[in-house]
Amino acid sequence: MNIFRLCGDLSHLLAILLLLFKIWKTRSCAGISGKTQLLFTIVYTARYLDLFTSFVSVYNSVMKIVFLTASYGTLYLMFYKFKPTYDHNHDSFRILYLIVPALVLSFIIVHVYTVMEILWTFSIYLEAVAIMPQLFMVSRTGEAETITSHYLFALGSYRALYILNWIYRYYTEDFLDWITIMAGIVQTILYCDFFYLYITKVLKGKRLSLP
């Protein structure tokens, strides 16, 4: 554990809690992509099956359980409790275009051919692109609520901080995992456009709207 990873994890946690808070407080999931949330739930489920097979630390296990619970909770709020507020007309990205390539790639580039390892790899590849339906939705509606922008910023920062963590781990403990590194870089690049808008607009008190 180093400062970059801890900040990354906290940023990730903050993002997930911010989203739940927004939906609960406004009693609406307008502007949130249910497809991205579904993809994240698939990601956590595929990756954290190792809760049953390997133990790293109490910290890791607790975080995994929190991420899983929060993601299923978000789906419950979006597709059941506040379903009428879900803006499905603007949430039209085809997620099979993300799931199928991620699945195929996880059979091609994987460390070890075991079911658990392929599921883990699939979750890494899928996570890298899971935000695309949400970014697509923002580009279609041309705007995002401020709290949604904070959510996206925290979620994007998490993987960027993980990249710093991997650089640090490479120098301090010779740790090198090309699968997570390449996927993490792709994931962070996808947010770059949004980061620019966030810094130039949201941080100056303006609403995030596209020209």
Partner: peptide, 10 residues
């Protein structure tokens, strides 16, 4: 033997 990889990150 199949190597088990311990993924220690989240």
């Amino acid at each position: 033997p199949v190597t088990e990889i311990d993924h220690d990150e989240l």
